[in-house]
Protein backbone atom coordinates (compact mmCIF):
# COMPACT_ATOMS: atom_id res chain seq x y z
CA UNK A 1 0.00 0.00 0.00
CA UNK A 2 2.67 2.48 1.00
CA UNK A 3 4.66 1.60 -2.09
CA UNK A 4 2.01 2.80 -4.50
CA UNK A 5 2.31 6.54 -4.05
CA UNK A 6 6.10 6.27 -4.09
CA UNK A 7 6.00 4.57 -7.46
CA UNK A 8 3.68 7.33 -8.66
CA UNK A 9 6.12 9.99 -7.54
CA UNK A 10 9.00 8.19 -9.23
CA UNK A 11 7.07 7.83 -12.47
CA UNK A 12 6.23 11.51 -12.39
CA UNK A 13 9.65 12.85 -11.51
CA UNK A 14 12.06 10.40 -13.07
CA UNK A 15 11.69 11.35 -16.76
CA UNK A 16 12.26 15.10 -16.22
CA UNK A 17 15.25 14.34 -14.00
CA UNK A 18 16.73 12.01 -16.60
CA UNK A 19 16.24 14.63 -19.28
CA UNK A 20 17.84 17.23 -17.05
CA UNK A 21 20.88 15.06 -16.41
CA UNK A 22 21.19 14.19 -20.09
CA UNK A 23 20.92 17.76 -21.33
CA UNK A 24 23.30 19.22 -18.77
CA UNK A 25 25.76 16.38 -19.30
CA UNK A 26 25.63 16.75 -23.07
CA UNK A 27 26.02 20.50 -22.83
CA UNK A 28 29.04 20.21 -20.55
CA UNK A 29 30.58 17.45 -22.63
CA UNK A 30 30.09 19.17 -25.98
CA UNK A 31 31.40 22.51 -24.76
CA UNK A 32 34.50 20.77 -23.43
CA UNK A 33 35.01 18.47 -26.40
CA UNK A 34 34.51 21.11 -29.07
CA UNK A 35 36.36 23.82 -27.12
CA UNK A 36 33.46 26.20 -27.59
CA UNK A 37 34.54 29.69 -26.66
CA UNK A 38 32.96 30.79 -23.46
CA UNK A 39 31.39 33.93 -24.93
CA UNK A 40 29.31 31.66 -27.12
CA UNK A 41 28.22 29.23 -24.47
CA UNK A 42 29.80 28.76 -21.07
CA UNK A 43 29.82 25.33 -19.44
CA UNK A 44 27.02 24.55 -17.00
CA UNK A 45 29.62 23.98 -14.29
CA UNK A 46 31.00 27.48 -14.87
CA UNK A 47 27.54 29.00 -14.77
CA UNK A 48 26.74 27.23 -11.52
CA UNK A 49 29.99 28.26 -9.90
CA UNK A 50 29.46 31.91 -10.89
CA UNK A 51 25.86 31.61 -9.72
CA UNK A 52 27.35 30.73 -6.32
CA UNK A 53 30.39 33.02 -6.14
CA UNK A 54 28.43 36.07 -7.28
CA UNK A 55 25.48 35.33 -5.06
CA UNK A 56 25.86 38.59 -3.14
CA UNK A 57 25.20 40.51 -6.33
CA UNK A 58 22.96 38.22 -8.33
CA UNK A 59 20.49 37.06 -5.73
CA UNK A 60 19.55 40.49 -4.39
CA UNK A 61 19.33 41.72 -7.99
CA UNK A 62 17.00 38.83 -8.78
CA UNK A 63 14.90 39.60 -5.74
CA UNK A 64 14.67 43.26 -6.74
CA UNK A 65 13.44 42.39 -10.23
CA UNK A 66 11.19 39.66 -8.90
CA UNK A 67 9.41 42.23 -6.74
CA UNK A 68 8.84 44.40 -9.79
CA UNK A 69 7.46 41.42 -11.68
CA UNK A 70 5.30 40.35 -8.77
CA UNK A 71 3.89 43.86 -8.38
CA UNK A 72 3.09 44.04 -12.08
CA UNK A 73 1.60 40.54 -12.02
CA UNK A 74 -0.66 41.41 -9.10
CA UNK A 75 -1.77 44.77 -10.49
CA UNK A 76 -2.23 43.56 -14.07
CA UNK A 77 -4.02 40.34 -13.19
CA UNK A 78 -6.19 42.06 -10.61
CA UNK A 79 -7.18 44.74 -13.08
CA UNK A 80 -7.81 42.05 -15.70
CA UNK A 81 -10.18 40.16 -13.43
CA UNK A 82 -12.00 43.35 -12.43
CA UNK A 83 -12.32 44.46 -16.04
CA UNK A 84 -13.59 41.05 -17.11
CA UNK A 85 -16.15 41.10 -14.32
CA UNK A 86 -17.41 44.54 -15.27
CA UNK A 87 -17.48 43.80 -18.98
CA UNK A 88 -19.05 40.39 -18.41
CA UNK A 89 -21.78 41.97 -16.32
CA UNK A 90 -22.88 44.19 -19.19
CA UNK A 91 -23.27 41.95 -22.17
CA UNK A 92 -23.69 44.53 -24.91
CA UNK A 93 -20.76 46.56 -23.62
CA UNK A 94 -18.73 43.36 -23.57
CA UNK A 95 -19.58 42.49 -27.13
CA UNK A 96 -18.76 45.98 -28.31
CA UNK A 97 -15.46 46.10 -26.45
CA UNK A 98 -14.31 42.57 -27.27
CA UNK A 99 -12.77 43.46 -30.68
CA UNK A 100 -10.74 46.20 -28.98
CA UNK A 101 -9.33 43.79 -26.46
CA UNK A 102 -8.58 41.23 -29.13
CA UNK A 103 -6.77 43.85 -31.22
CA UNK A 104 -4.91 45.17 -28.18
CA UNK A 105 -3.88 41.61 -27.41
CA UNK A 106 -2.21 41.44 -30.82
CA UNK A 107 -0.10 44.55 -30.19
CA UNK A 108 3.56 43.89 -29.35
CA UNK A 109 3.36 45.69 -26.01
CA UNK A 110 7.07 45.14 -25.49
CA UNK A 111 7.71 47.84 -28.10
CA UNK A 112 6.19 50.31 -25.65
CA UNK A 113 8.68 49.44 -22.91
CA UNK A 114 10.86 52.54 -23.41
CA UNK A 115 7.79 54.76 -23.15
CA UNK A 116 7.00 53.41 -19.73
CA UNK A 117 10.54 54.31 -18.81
CA UNK A 118 9.83 57.86 -19.94
CA UNK A 119 6.49 58.06 -18.16
CA UNK A 120 7.80 56.87 -14.85
CA UNK A 121 11.26 57.42 -13.52
CA UNK A 122 13.22 54.56 -15.12
CA UNK A 123 15.23 54.11 -11.91
CA UNK A 124 12.05 53.52 -9.93
CA UNK A 125 10.48 50.05 -9.94
CA UNK A 126 7.09 51.52 -10.90
CA UNK A 127 8.06 51.78 -14.55
CA UNK A 128 8.83 48.05 -14.72
CA UNK A 129 5.70 47.18 -12.77
CA UNK A 130 3.70 49.19 -15.29
CA UNK A 131 5.04 47.19 -18.25
CA UNK A 132 4.58 43.89 -16.46
CA UNK A 133 1.06 44.93 -15.48
CA UNK A 134 0.07 45.88 -19.01
CA UNK A 135 1.52 42.62 -20.33
CA UNK A 136 -0.47 40.59 -17.77
CA UNK A 137 -3.69 42.54 -18.06
CA UNK A 138 -4.84 41.51 -21.52
CA UNK A 139 -4.50 37.72 -21.40
CA UNK A 140 -6.06 37.62 -17.94
CA UNK A 141 -8.90 39.88 -18.96
CA UNK A 142 -9.67 38.09 -22.23
CA UNK A 143 -9.50 34.61 -20.74
CA UNK A 144 -11.50 35.44 -17.63
CA UNK A 145 -14.18 37.05 -19.72
CA UNK A 146 -14.36 33.98 -21.92
CA UNK A 147 -14.59 31.83 -18.81
CA UNK A 148 -17.38 33.91 -17.31
CA UNK A 149 -19.30 33.58 -20.55
CA UNK A 150 -18.86 29.86 -21.01
CA UNK A 151 -21.19 28.58 -18.31
CA UNK A 152 -23.39 25.89 -19.81
CA UNK A 153 -26.89 27.20 -20.56
CA UNK A 154 -28.63 24.28 -18.81
CA UNK A 155 -26.63 24.89 -15.64
CA UNK A 156 -27.80 28.48 -15.63
CA UNK A 157 -31.36 27.37 -16.37
CA UNK A 158 -31.36 25.02 -13.41
CA UNK A 159 -30.30 27.90 -11.16
CA UNK A 160 -33.18 29.94 -12.60
CA UNK A 161 -35.53 27.13 -11.65
CA UNK A 162 -34.39 27.70 -8.05
CA UNK A 163 -35.25 31.38 -8.44
CA UNK A 164 -31.57 32.28 -8.11
CA UNK A 165 -30.69 35.95 -8.57
CA UNK A 166 -28.16 36.99 -11.20
CA UNK A 167 -25.65 37.55 -8.43
CA UNK A 168 -26.15 34.05 -7.13
CA UNK A 169 -25.84 32.55 -10.60
CA UNK A 170 -22.66 34.51 -11.01
CA UNK A 171 -21.24 33.30 -7.72
CA UNK A 172 -22.31 29.70 -7.90
CA UNK A 173 -22.02 28.96 -11.63
CA UNK A 174 -20.13 31.57 -13.62
CA UNK A 175 -17.21 32.05 -11.26
CA UNK A 176 -16.48 28.33 -10.78
CA UNK A 177 -16.72 27.85 -14.55
CA UNK A 178 -14.30 30.72 -15.12
CA UNK A 179 -11.69 29.58 -12.61
CA UNK A 180 -9.86 27.10 -14.88
CA UNK A 181 -9.76 29.79 -17.59
CA UNK A 182 -8.40 32.29 -15.09
CA UNK A 183 -5.61 29.98 -14.00
CA UNK A 184 -4.58 29.24 -17.57
CA UNK A 185 -4.20 32.99 -18.04
CA UNK A 186 -2.38 33.46 -14.74
CA UNK A 187 0.20 30.89 -15.79
CA UNK A 188 0.84 32.85 -18.98
CA UNK A 189 0.90 36.11 -17.02
CA UNK A 190 3.40 34.80 -14.48
CA UNK A 191 5.94 34.21 -17.24
CA UNK A 192 5.11 37.48 -18.99
CA UNK A 193 5.54 39.56 -15.84
CA UNK A 194 9.13 38.40 -15.38
CA UNK A 195 9.92 38.98 -19.06
CA UNK A 196 8.28 42.41 -18.89
CA UNK A 197 10.36 43.47 -15.92
CA UNK A 198 13.61 42.37 -17.54
CA UNK A 199 12.86 43.95 -20.89
CA UNK A 200 11.88 47.12 -19.07
CA UNK A 201 15.22 47.14 -17.32
CA UNK A 202 16.96 46.82 -20.64
CA UNK A 203 15.90 50.41 -21.39
CA UNK A 204 17.41 51.62 -18.14
CA UNK A 205 16.79 50.74 -14.55
CA UNK A 206 18.32 50.67 -11.10
CA UNK A 207 21.93 49.47 -10.94
CA UNK A 208 20.98 46.60 -8.67
CA UNK A 209 18.28 45.21 -10.96
CA UNK A 210 18.77 41.84 -12.61
CA UNK A 211 18.08 42.98 -16.17
CA UNK A 212 20.61 45.75 -15.84
CA UNK A 213 23.17 43.38 -14.32
CA UNK A 214 22.79 40.84 -17.13
CA UNK A 215 23.02 43.55 -19.74
CA UNK A 216 26.14 45.10 -18.25
CA UNK A 217 27.82 41.72 -17.87
CA UNK A 218 27.12 40.88 -21.50
CA UNK A 219 28.50 44.22 -22.66
CA UNK A 220 31.79 43.73 -20.85
CA UNK A 221 31.98 40.16 -22.17
CA UNK A 222 31.44 38.56 -18.77
CA UNK A 223 29.25 35.93 -20.35
CA UNK A 224 29.48 33.45 -17.52
CA UNK A 225 28.05 36.09 -15.20
CA UNK A 226 25.38 36.99 -17.76
CA UNK A 227 24.36 33.34 -17.99
CA UNK A 228 24.27 33.05 -14.22
CA UNK A 229 21.97 36.04 -14.20
CA UNK A 230 19.80 34.39 -16.83
CA UNK A 231 19.68 31.31 -14.62
CA UNK A 232 18.47 33.45 -11.72
CA UNK A 233 15.78 34.98 -13.92
CA UNK A 234 14.59 31.56 -15.12
CA UNK A 235 14.50 30.12 -11.63
CA UNK A 236 12.42 33.05 -10.44
CA UNK A 237 10.10 32.75 -13.43
CA UNK A 238 9.68 29.04 -12.76
CA UNK A 239 9.04 29.76 -9.09
CA UNK A 240 6.23 32.19 -9.89
CA UNK A 241 4.77 29.81 -12.46
CA UNK A 242 4.91 26.91 -10.01
CA UNK A 243 3.21 29.01 -7.36
CA UNK A 244 0.32 29.56 -9.77
CA UNK A 245 0.19 25.83 -10.56
CA UNK A 246 0.03 24.99 -6.85
CA UNK A 247 -2.69 27.57 -6.31
CA UNK A 248 -4.60 26.07 -9.21
CA UNK A 249 -4.40 22.58 -7.74
CA UNK A 250 -5.67 23.92 -4.43
CA UNK A 251 -8.52 25.90 -5.90
CA UNK A 252 -9.64 23.86 -8.91
CA UNK A 253 -9.73 20.63 -6.98
CA UNK A 254 -12.72 19.18 -8.77
CA UNK A 255 -11.19 18.80 -12.20
CA UNK A 256 -10.04 15.40 -13.46
CA UNK A 257 -6.49 16.78 -13.76
CA UNK A 258 -6.31 17.48 -10.03
CA UNK A 259 -6.73 13.76 -9.43
CA UNK A 260 -7.19 13.88 -5.68
CA UNK A 261 -8.03 10.52 -4.21
Amino acid sequence: MTLRPRIGVVVEWLPPLVVFALVVGLWEGLVRALHVQQFLLPKPSTIISVFWTQRHVLWPAGWYTFKEALGGFAIGSGAGVVAATVVGRFRTAGQALMPIFIAANAVPIIAFAPIFGAWFNPIQPQSKMAIAAVLCFLPVMVNTLRGLQSARPRQVELMRSYAASELEIWRRVRVPTALPFLFTALKVASVLSMIGAIVGEYFGGAMNALGVTINTDAQIFQFDAAWAGILVASLLGIALYSAVVVAERLVVRWSPEARVS
Binding site: Y202, G211, G229, I230, L236, G237, Y241
Partner: peptide, 12 residues
Protein backbone atom coordinates in the same frame (compact mmCIF):
# COMPACT_ATOMS: atom_id res chain seq x y z
CA UNK B 1 11.44 22.22 -19.77
CA UNK B 2 9.35 23.43 -22.68
CA UNK B 3 7.36 25.46 -20.18
CA UNK B 4 10.56 26.48 -18.41
CA UNK B 5 12.12 27.60 -21.70
CA UNK B 6 9.73 30.52 -21.80
CA UNK B 7 10.91 31.82 -18.44
CA UNK B 8 14.38 32.35 -19.92
CA UNK B 9 14.63 36.08 -20.63
CA UNK B 10 15.13 35.86 -24.37
CA UNK B 11 16.25 39.47 -24.54
CA UNK B 12 19.21 38.55 -22.36
Amino acid sequence: YIVGSQTVPILA
